[in-house]
Design a protein around this nucleic acid. Structure first.
Lengths: 356, 356
DNA sequence: ATGAAAGCGCTAACAC
DNA sequence: GTGTTAGCGCTTTCAT
């Protein structure tokens, strides 16, 4: 292994000068710079990041903890985080929590153990009781969940607003027997992704004079098989359903398959709308209407908050909440029989991020 | 920040003893161990991985370089790699190459710069000419590409065999006007994923007395829009196509959408088969027949090779090639009109990995 | 079974 | 502008 010392000897300077060249500090004489650069080239020197990090008291790595990586939404999220983090000078290590509370808590522990500089945590299962963990003297930004009781930086989709958009869209397209798959009724102060979307959906229906039958909200895991099978149990309690809001597009893909298995046509018999606007949605048959969150804006905000927190440039009591905007993308799966089907897909728009 | 020294003072021992406890070395007296553990607990000590790594000359991180993360196949691959690597005691940092040769070369450079302990590289664009890079005195395992000219550890899907399986399946199901989307004719010794699958497909057709029209092989990017649009150009040269082999399932999803846009029914008018067996495939409508590689076996093999290489437990001239097995998964998209449609989906089997 | 000394490769702080 | 000194937190080596 070639060290700075080796380069310094070769170039006839001190290690410090090599360091100055490597780090592009400006006050190095041009001639010296060239000598050192030549020596680096000849010896094939690369800096030892570990040593640099030890000296600087950082690791240059942030953790990204999420439920699963092999689902379109998380794939897209990861891609955005990795790219953006690198722009901030950080590498990203991915941690899989399996969507379990223990997994999410373990990620926090593990993250500190591994000495990441900070953690971006997609937490769906952490409850207010777990706040002590989040309070940790450790830079954490929560993503995708809203926590009311704990002071913690977090970025959240406008879940309730999205649910309301979906409700109004289905009503407008003539649906009257509405259901939700992947929904859950809130049972306290906390609102996770599922309950927030359900609440927004139910509230908007109520405002329109409709009541959402509790039986019509199927609380199923966000997997393709479970979502497909949810159709059967939904039809058992509501055989004449004509509009389904799915908590995520992934759920919707399973539901569409389930409806087909029951011989139901989309959108003629049942209209379907999802949430997340993953790329698959626009190419499914029929193309899937969806609520599109401003993922790019949210990732930017989250990393901004995390980097600030790591740098300590924000006070210990100064916590922020960023709410990502949502937009309706109407496609074939909610097309009105009276109008022409909308052809898929269009380019993504540029939703706005609200900041409080 | 709490250091070993702090713990040592608190427990009334030396730092070395704390180190011995932390690393679970066996020759520590039980009483001492308890004292130290208590001090660690009280002070909330965690080891500084950076310092440990500096001392041990490793980073504990391996790089995973792949084209894109936000595609089902790569999502699944990443999930497997992350889980398996952790079992070997490594974290994984993901690098996106964008499926460009420069991206792949940059990943190697970057990886050395960042001092990862090793690199798992999904390379599709590296040519034999770039062999010097791979020869680097740096542990690299190639994944998904076959390289003939360079001595390098690599793990590869049985691409040609998979292509042949697809060909024979389509023929067996009565197709006679065959095409391929996402295929590419080889132009040299090297065979990347696309050319290997194309070759296997074409060879199997030839063996069955069919000739694959060069015009019927559409070399399009592996994206949903490009794959959908490829259907139009394919129909222009081959209006009566009745069987399409898609280089990946992702391509197939786009092709299925494109066929629908042209009013063609699957499988009645055109049968479609993909490659990779991603979860979406089994839930598409119709469910997509696919060639399923033994991903689990391949990831195990790749990490095994990489860990050996990092540990230096294999000679500098001892390079291995591992070939991952493939299996046919027949589903609705290639169903025979004469027989009943096969209902999706079944659990994944346990393909065999061949080792040469 | 435990401790003391040394040093991994780098850079902050200061001296020249 | 460039060099010297010191030390980040840990573990290897060797002594006790």
């Amino acid at each position: 292994m070639v060290t700075m010392q080796d380069v310094a000897r070769r170039a006839g300077v001190s290690a410090m000068t090599v360091s100055n060249v490597v780090n592009e500090r400006h006050y190095v004489r041009e001639e010296t710079r060239r000598k050192v650069s030549a020596a680096i080239e000849e010896l094939g020197y690369t800096v030892n990041t570990t040593a640099r990090n030890l000296r600087q008291g950082r690791t240059g790595v942030i953790g990204l903890a999420l439920s699963e990586i092999d689902r379109p939404y998380f794939g897209r999220l990861s891609a955005l985080v990795v790219r953006r983090a690198r722009q901030h000078g950080y590498e990203v290590v991915i941690e899989i929590t399996g969507d379990r509370r223990e997994g999410e808590m373990a990620a926090i522990q593990h993250s500190r153990l591994r000495s990441y500089d900070g953690l971006l945590l997609y937490a769906s299962q952490l409850k207010a009781d777990d706040s002590s963990l989040l309070r940790a003297d450790y830079p954490i930004v929560l993503f995708g969940e809203r926590t009311y009781t704990t002071p913690v930086d977090h970025v959240v989709v406008a879940n309730a607003e999205g649910g309301a958009l979906a409700a109004r869209h289905l009503l407008e397209r003539g649906c009257s027997r509405l259901a939700m798959v992947g929904g859950r009724w809130s049972d306290g102060d906390d609102a996770d992704v599922a309950t927030a979307r359900t609440q927004g959906f139910a509230d908007a229906l109520r405002d329109a004079g409709q009541v959402l039958d509790p039986e019509a909200v199927r609380d199923t895991p966000y997997t393709l098989p479970a979502s497909r099978d949810a159709v059967g149990s939904l039809l058992a309690v509501m055989p004449d359903v004509d509009g389904i809001f799915c908590a995520t597009d992934w759920v919707a893909l399973g539901v569409m398959r389930g409806l087909a298995d029951h011989g139901l046509r989309i959108p003629e018999d049942v209209k379907v709308i999802g949430f997340d606007d993953v790329e698959e949605a626009a190419f499914a048959r029929p193309s899937l209407s969806s609520i599109a969150p401003d993922l790019v804006g949210m990732v930017d905000a989250a990393l901004g908050l995390l980097v600030e927190r790591v740098a300590g440039s924000r006070g210990a009591d100064d916590y922020r909440e960023v709410v990502g905007g949502v937009q309706l993308r109407a496609r074939e799966s909610t097309a009105d029989e009276r109008g022409p089907a909308i052809r898929a897909p269009e380019a993504g728009g540029d939703p706005h991020a609200g900041r409080r």
